[in-house]
């Protein structure tokens, strides 16, 4: 019932417990200008990261997006051009925020990967393939998303999903 394109992009690898303060610092939050968040993304973690994010897939360790509920963290990742996020695990508020923005998410508890490896992933199958420089490949099965989560992502996020729900209720 769901049709998703396969995503293929180079990996940018991050460690464990990347908190939302590290994704976008509190001092940049108080604005409506979302570009500011994309411009300062990961500034307190690694100032070189920003330039490498466009067109990449983030591959993170466990507990990605822990800490503050700030949705600006997920918005900044999307605006920076990140195609998908693969992580050993996600913090649940970040997970919901990213899902609501229709960012493809893959939870793969045992993934190993290096910067620049080619990642191929599909929401339809939940398969995540890592291909290294020597063309060795390893395929993982991501934790399944619920029907609801897939529906929200396939519709383009929570806003279109709610619009549909509201129009049904109005009938």
């Amino acid at each position: 019932m769901h049709v998703f394109n396969t995503i293929q992009a180079p990996a940018v690898c991050l460690g464990d417990d990347i908190d939302t303060d590290l994704i976008i610092a509190g001092r940049y939050l108080r604005t409506k200008d979302a570009q500011i968040w994309a411009d300062h993304i990961f500034e307190d973690l690694d100032t070189t990261l920003h330039a490498r994010l466009n067109g990449c897939i983030i591959v993170a360790g466990k507990n990605f997006g822990c800490g503050s509920s700030r949705e600006q963290a997920a918005v900044s990742i999307q605006l920076a051009g990140v195609q998908a996020i693969v992580a050993r695990s996600f913090s649940r508020i970040f997970f919901r925020n990213a899902l609501n923005l229709a960012i493809p998410l893959f939870e793969v508890p045992d993934i190993t990967c290096h910067d620049g490896d080619t990642i191929t992933c599909s929401l339809e199958t939940g398969k995540v393939t890592v291909q290294d420089e020597s063309k060795n490949t390893m395929t993982y099965q991501a934790q399944p998303l619920s029907e609801r989560m897939l529906e929200i992502i396939s519709m383009g996020g929570l806003l279109p999903y709610i619009e549909k729900r509201m129009s049904f209720k109005a009938l």
Partner: peptide
């Protein structure tokens, strides 16, 4: 429990949300 801005906007609209 805590959520982000889009979930909250959905709550303003519908008065309900999903939970696991």
């Amino acid at each position: 429990t805590g959520v982000g801005a889009t979930d909250m906007a959905g709550l303003w609209a519908l008065g309900e949300t999903w939970f696991r």
